[in-house]
Amino acid sequence: MRIQPSYAVRRVAFAAATLLAAIVMNFLLPRLIAGNPAEMIASQTALGSPEVAEAIKKQFGLENDSLLYQFKQYIVQLVHGNLGISYFNYPTPVAEVLLKALPWTLGIVLLSTVLSYAAGWLIGIRGALKPGTWFDNAALGVSFFINSVPYFWIGILLILLFGYKLDWFPMGQAFSVDYDSLSAAGKLRSISYHTVLPIVSLAIASLASHILVLRNNLSRALTEDYMVLARAKGLSGRRRTFHYGVRNAFLPSFTGFMLSLGHVVGGAITMEIVFSYPGIGMLTYNAILNHDYPLIQGAFLMIAVSIIAVNLLADLIYPFIDPRVNLN
C-alpha cells in the first residue's frame, strides 16, 4: 500500500492552513475578550517597577496599539521560537514555563489514554462478540454509569479512599518532597508512585466511552452484508471476526484514539487540579485566572500544534489501515 501523493499533499496543506489559522486565532483570542492587554500589563507591572512594565510592553510589541503591528511582532517572535515572557513568572520565558510542565502532563495523560483504550477495546470486543452475556451486560451497565459520572468525582473518591483512608498512595503532587535527595531510581519510583492515582482516575473516566464505541461499531460490523458474504464464502469464524469485523469496527476507534492523543497536552485540567499535579492543565488554569496572556497563548499554541501534528499523522497513517481513503 502506498499513499497517493495528491492525498498526502492535501492533508499537509490542510494542516498548514489550520496551523496558520490557529496562530491568528491564538493571537486574537486574548485580545478579543480581554480588551486592551497593554492596560493589563501596566497595572500588573511585573516586579513593581514602571521600567519593567515598559520593557515588557516592548517585548510583546504592545508599545504600539495597532493590532497589525502587534501581529507582526508576534509572528516575528514566533518564527524565532520566542513565545514571549510570562507576566506572572517574569522574567521566565513562556516556552520554559511550558516545557517544565509538559512532561508531567504527557506522562499521565499519555499512559492513561493508552491504558484506557487498550482496556476499553478488549472489553468492547469481548462484549460485542458475546452480546447478551453477563459480561457484556455488566460492562455495558458499568460503562453507561461511569460515562454519567463527573470525572473529577472519580478522582476525589480515589484520593479519599486510597490516599486518605487507606494511605496506599499520595493524595497529590508529582513526587515526594525529598525528591532532590533521591537516587535516579528513587526519583523514578517516587514519580511513578505519584502517577498511579491520576492515571487510574483518568483511565477509568475515559474507559467507558471507548468500550461503548468499540462494542457498538463491532456489533454493527458483525451484522453487515459483507459478514454474511464472508460466511457464505465459508471463511472461518475467527478470520471473519478479525479480518472483517474487528478491522472495520476498529477504524472509528482509531480516529478517536488519535484525536485523544492530540488532546493529551491540554486534556486534564480538572484532574490535575484535583491531584495538585504540576502539569499543563494546572498551568493553563492558573494562567487564565491570572490573565497571563502570553502564557495562555503559549499553552494554546502548544496544544494546537500537538493536535494538528497528531491529526496529520493520523491522516497519513489512515490509508494503510483503510485503503478506501486513498481513492477520493
Binding site: W168, F169, P170, G186, R189, S190, Y193, H194, V196
Partner: peptide
C-alpha cells in the same frame, strides 16, 4: 512494579 516499588518507598 510501580505500585509495588512505591509501596516500599512509601
Amino acid at each position: 512494579p510501580l505500585i509495588a516499588c512505591s509501596n516500599n518507598q512509601a
